[in-house]
Design a protein around this nucleic acid. Sequence first.
DNA 1: GTAGGGTTAG
Length: 680
Amino acid sequence: MSSISIYESNKRNSSIAGFTSNIFSSNQLIHLYSNHGLLRDAQKLFDEMPHRNVFSWNTIISAYVKAHNLAQAQALFDSASQKDLVSYNSMLSGYVGADDGYETEAIDLFIRMQFVRETVGIDEVTLTTMLNLASKLRVAIYGRQVHSYMVKTGNDGSIHAVSSLIDMYSKCGLFGEAWNVFSGCEGKVDLISKNAMLAACFREGKMDLGLNLFWENLELSDTISWNTLISGYAQNGYGEKSLSMFIQMVQNGVKWDERTLASVVSACSGLKCLELGKSVHAWVLKNGFISNQIISSAIVDLYCKCGNLKYAESVHARIGTNNPFSVASFIAGYSSQGNMKEAQRVFDSLTEKNSIVWTALISGYVKTQQCESVFKLFKDYMTTEALVPDALVFISVLSACAIQAALTMGKQIHAHILRIRLEMNKKLLSALVDMYSKCGNIAYAEKIFHLFTDSDRDAVIYNVMVAGYAHHGFEHEAFRLFQEMLKKNVKPDAVTFIALLSACRHRGLIQLGEQFFRSMEDHNILPESDHYACMVDMYGRANELDKAVEFMRKIPIEMDATVLGAFLNACRVSSNVELAKEVEEKLLKVEANNGARYVQLANVYAAEGNWDEMGRIRKKMRGKEVKKLAGCSWIYLENGVHVFTSGDSSHSKSDAIYTALIYLNEKLHFSSTEYVEDIF
DNA sequence: GTAGGGTTAG
């Protein structure tokens, strides 16, 4: 109604004031139509204008940019009889803000602007728009170049520039640079740049820094600031803090919106808190928020994370869309239940696949240790996907390489990452260190570890390197690095101690192991079953069954198969069949379907020549129809992977292979004899 | 006097 009355008054004005006023009011009206989504009316009015000025052209171009009709915007831009810097900037922001696929056009237009710089010019709007392109592409070198361009042309001072720079550096993985920009303009920080810095802190996992920033100047905060905190905590795995921030937000009388709600749902999923999630779901249904795609896909994710895929399917079906985010949740949900068939099915059902679903499926195959499927999918991803390569995909594939000890593949992926100049973030570097270490190349792992600057070294990367040293038998290096970690005030976590305790158990360093275990309390880390299992295994390997028994008595948590299995091993080493029998019952209660456990049990009895007991276990195994997967070795050749089990003769060239093996064995024998002779 | 650029959700 309001647009009609303005149209009426516009007609009246034009009859009084003539052309200039007519152009002015028409421009305003076009803008108004566009803001209300009435693009046809806007176009009609534009077409009917007897005279237009540069504002008319810019307004109609922007109208099409806003409506995401870039083809039409571009056609108007190309045919416009009057063009100025605003026309260029409007078109540029259209390309940059497009959902996908206009990056080249944006760069081309920016280059063309360099040629008309004398007449049209380039200003801060142009450059902040280009910063957006850099953050969208996550390519820090572009962002840096634009930043220096801004400095050179004196376009880096305004508050618009500051928030864009913070956002760009943060999204490109350069938190330190973002912080430098922020702290370099103290005094004139506004709400938006503060919010950008808050988001940067939480993106980097620096929650305390973000929280301080938030409370320091509470007057300078709005719904977006609160939303940033609530979602930031949820995304970093602090569901409870996220929910308590939401409560504080309500208590402070701050208006919340749909984004707040989406984050609250995601906090519930993180906590696997089905009850609370369900009540939020009910509330969402009652208040009509279910039509919001992001909220409803967050609810789908909630049910998937809680393992209730039936509920998730029904919510998904009711929304009835092709939403890639919900599909990614299903893929993760089915993967965590080991059901890759269903995961693959929902993936295949999606017509338009984004990086998120690719990442979800690939990491699903990694979790279920189906590495060949990972490599095959990765090939498809690289050849069919026109998207910006996602670091998370590379991280997943690198961990598949680590599982398979596929060094050549890992090296190729590393080279590829360098070639496409993917920004090396911490997670990617950690994945590389882990890959090289687990593929047996500790020297390369070390090299990459040293690429981390001191301030970049967090607990995760230290853990990877400490574990790497431990696995390669360099326990002194592992302990040294742990000391360094403490000295640099990096807080060790549960994983750190698993690495340290493993180093001790492999070397029989009982006293040191006990010391590490006790010191966990000083670091406020509660031992988990893996730690207990490490300790039991340590005593077991050192033939200290008494100590293992004593330790077991003190374990305050319910013992799972890892701990019991370690104890069983200790019984085998100390040839104690009686205790083995005791633990057998408990072990088969908690893990009745793991074939490997039966074999382990049978081996304990067999080692003592107790064939009756062994036969009994074998029978038990048959009755339960459990199988143990045969241990195997494999080799990568040009045309793929070849898997061998002991005494395997199924390979088409097995005769030739065994002949070569006999020959190699002889060679090996000779050389090891020579080696021994050298020493003595 | 009108038109273009900055922060938060799955």
